[in-house]
Simulated scan of single mutants.
Amino acid sequence: MTKPLRGAEGIKARAAGVAGRVEPVPAPKPVPVFLPVWSESVRGVPNGFLRSALFGAIAKGRRRYMDSELVASVDGVEIRYTGQRLDQGDLDTYESVLHTVRLQAMGELCRFKAYGLLKLMGKTDTGKNRETLYKRLVRLRANAIEIKQGRHTYVGGLIDGAFKDEETQEWLVMLNPRLQALFAPDQFTQVQWSVRQALDGHQLAQWLHGFYASHAKPFPLKIETLHKLCGSEAGLMSDFAKKLRKALDAVAEASSANGEGFSYDIRGDLVHVEKQAQGAQRRHLIKKATKPRIPRD
């Protein structure tokens, strides 16, 4: 049995051993990821959320549970969802969370009080509204989505984590940094918040406003297609058509009152919408119109 070296010989041996070790290289610190910064008058939303039934136009009452179910969406977007069905009120809450988080790095805990988020949403600070806010934040956390939008696929929750201090009413919410891929310049829309607020409580009108806001130049769609895309629970297409016309009237009125151009016409079973493009959409159309055409052979 070899005896351990002591004294000067032991010190030399230990020093030689330490010198021969390969020290691990520390991993580089992750680069902070941020959402785009938009103005106070708008809310940034991924196009896939606006062009699908993920946040549907559904009636009040018991919500159906979905288990990795394919959600109706436009071509180019594919969504599977697990959790309780989400409505436009949930989207209002999520838009407000995104609006708050955009000012700091994603993956970090974002602090806000129930009062502040309710105020941002245009809601009064009452016990009922705080309870509703709590339920919506839980619903936004207790889900899983698989969304393919553009070149990216995101698999995860809409909210990564949420914590609440019952004494101070302070919330701590965290978003997955990977969500940032859904906010590429041509993959998200800045929705005019004043118009959306004017339509508060009108599920179908809010959905229509968001859907058409995500299109710089809307193309005609069948009533049946809109019925499917918005996730309507109306059983008869004739009933949905009546609700659709009223909702489009509401969008046109709210848009006009808030400086947005929006008009529609229903010809047969086709819905034609014309709108005045705003901000980035207007720049996109101007750039597209002035882009030199390459002659075909």
Results as ranks from 00 to 15, higher is better:
Arg6Ile: 14
Val18Ser: 07
Ala19Ser: 10
Arg21Trp: 06
Arg21Pro: 03
Glu23Tyr: 13
Ala27Tyr: 05
Ala27Met: 09
Val42Asn: 01
Val45Glu: 06
Val45Tyr: 03
Arg51Asp: 00
Leu54Tyr: 03
Phe55Tyr: 04
Ala59Val: 07
Ala59Asn: 07
Arg64Ile: 06
Tyr65Leu: 11
Asp67Gly: 05
Glu69Asn: 08
Val71His: 00
Val71Phe: 02
Ile79Met: 04
Tyr81Cys: 02
Arg85Phe: 00
Leu86Ala: 02
Asp87Thr: 01
Gln88Ile: 06
Thr93Phe: 02
Glu95Trp: 03
Arg102Ile: 15
Leu109Trp: 13
Lys113Asn: 15
Tyr115Ser: 12
Leu117Arg: 02
Lys119Ala: 11
Met121Asp: 03
Met121Pro: 00
Thr124Cys: 05
Thr124Glu: 09
Lys128Gly: 12
Asn129Thr: 13
Tyr134Leu: 13
Tyr134His: 10
Leu137Trp: 02
Leu140Pro: 00
Ala142Arg: 09
Ile145Trp: 04
Lys148Ser: 13
Gln149Ser: 13
Glu166Gln: 12
Glu170His: 08
Leu175Ile: 06
Pro177Lys: 10
Gln180Lys: 14
Ala181Asn: 08
Ala184Ser: 11
Pro185Ser: 11
Asp186Thr: 15
Thr189Gly: 01
Trp193Gly: 00
Val195Met: 06
Leu199Pro: 03
Asp200Ile: 06
Gln203Asp: 07
Gln203Glu: 14
Gln206Ser: 10
His215Gln: 14
Phe219Glu: 09
Phe240Ser: 02
Ala247Ile: 05
Asp249His: 08
Asp249Met: 08
Ala250Val: 07
Ala254Trp: 08
Gly261Val: 09
Phe262Tyr: 10
Leu270Glu: 12
Ile286Ala: 05
Lys287Cys: 04
Ala289Asp: 08
